[in-house]
Amino acid sequence: MNPELLFFFETVIGGLMAGVMYSLVALGFVLIFKASGIFNFAQGVMCLFAALALYDFMAPGGWVDRWFGFTFPVWAAIALTIVVMIILAWLIERFVLQYLVKQEPIILFMATIGLAYVLEGIGDILFGSDVKPLDVGIPQGASDWLWDNFNLYIEKLEIFAAATAAVLVTVLAIFFQRTRIGRALRAVADDHQAALSVGISLRTIWVIVWSVSGIVALVAGIMWGSKSGVQFSLSLIALKALPVLILGGFTSVPGAIVGGLIIGVGEKLAEVYFGPYVGGAIENWFAYMLALVFLLFRPQGLFGERIIERV
């Protein structure tokens, strides 16, 4: 194959794979936004927190190791971390959200900012702030098969992440479209009082949603942790999810995926083909520029619900 074309493909695929990682983080945001209209500022920290907890359950020198003298195998550690995230969701509902029913979205948003700092602090105190290499057995290195046959360099981890994201989205889409909880969830997002009046328990729905988005955060945390180690800068990736959400629409699960892919590919292509002319480092701000353009022309995003306002 023409080496230039090959390079183009490699860039696009690399971008898609990076995009999947953004999408995983964005998914968690979408879930909570769908169910409560809150932009959860703490989503990035939840990824970090989940990854920290997971690491601690299986690494020598963690709390479990120090207190009980053993560590958990990977599958048990993941199961335990899921339990931790569900408990966390319950605590958040019990001590924060419960008191904020019927409040303005901005107030709930402020609450999640507070939550982000609290979680980050707890994570730091419990687990320490050093970078931790997370290894849950996801294959590392480049895919030999793609390299041998197509001369393409793609990390196995990224392929794995893409497959995981696909499964996750399918399951979530089915959950939202077909189940009673899914419909209840959309109802809660729309109008708290009305949802209550048809017998939907706000508290149950909130615990469910925060649990699910905690589990999604765990998946994202595992992928990012395996890629670049569990470190506190993980919570900043949340910021990259913002343009993803603006592109895809805050309320759409498929939108989070497509938005992530567009951002991923867009910033890689821009960096490689446009970057040299303006001195490089486009990758850092390209996503935000793209989001800005979308805000001007299609504020509800590609897949978001139309904003309907009667005056």
Partner: peptide, 14 residues
Amino acid sequence: ALFKGMSTLDNIMT
């Protein structure tokens, strides 16, 4: 207090 983004049918389904 309706679910504004949903259709009439979905609203009544809730």
